[in-house]
Amino acid sequence: MAVVAAEASPFTRSLVRSLEASGYFRVVAQPASEAAAESLMAQGEVQFVLHLPAGFSRSLARGERPVVLVEADASDPAATGNALASLQALNLSALDRDLAGPLAHLRASAPAFELRVHRRYNPEGITAYNIVPGLMGVVLTMTMVMMTALAMTRERERGTMENLLATPVRPFEVMAGKIVPYILIGYVQVVVILVAAKLLFRVPMVGSLALLSAILVLFIAANLAVGFTFSTLARNQLQAMQMTFFFFLPSMLLSGFMFPFRGMPGWAQVVGEFLPLTHFLRIVRGILLKGNGWTDIAFEVAALAAFLLAAGAVALTRYRETLD
């Protein structure tokens, strides 16, 4: 949560502290301006922004019921729903201790301030908006990793690998040859999912599809490199299959697809940060729902690129030009 406070007083501090005490909120930033807060939310750095208006204490004391605005990133309704529900209860009791003496009359009556919640990006809280773009990442992860993992082990099982190795092809050529066709297949899947998202689920597509498709190359290639690495480790197709699931299940569970990322325990979040799907989910949701531009997702793209480089390097060093 980010707090944009136009004033600092005992009342605002109590309010923030009581929010933190609920367990749903943790103040991670105090941006100086509304614009800075806006970009933090667009980048997914914060899930909530609390706006405290200027003159909050004064109008509170006058019994004018000042308006406190909470903006919530509702692109994942499950991640914000409970927290927003808890806000209403806090509202009633947050300032009880500070409303003493002459202000005590404000305590028992209606809430001393008014809380307004803006659900951003997905105001109706439609879960499909969050799941359908995420599904694109999940489907790509599973099919891409599995296809390459099987493609190479299949060569080995069938005995065609020996023939391939006896020819002058280089490891990089083999890897490129195995990966490029699947990138095209990946794009076909993406188109199917996007068309379904648009026509069947009416998922908003705020951002640039060109940007998304550029990043898709990176994401698909990262998964294919993982598959290729598995295929250099596995001795047969069954092992390759098992490795695929060993990668796929954590991807699905820890990336923020199944459970809200911030709701997971710390260790799970750390593991999640190393999975390409985690970053891709942030990118795809950011672009489709929030209209993220290049600068908003630069970090996630860099993370994907780093993953691709690492996986590609492992795959190439693991690939043997010999049968040793």
Partner: peptide
């Protein structure tokens, strides 16, 4: 120089190793 060898050697494997 196995790369150069591979260019000039024809190796027929014991098992049929073309694509079925």
């Amino acid at each position: 120089e196995s790369a150069s060898i591979k260019r000039q050697v024809g190796y027929m494997t014991q098992r049929f190793s073309l694509y079925e």
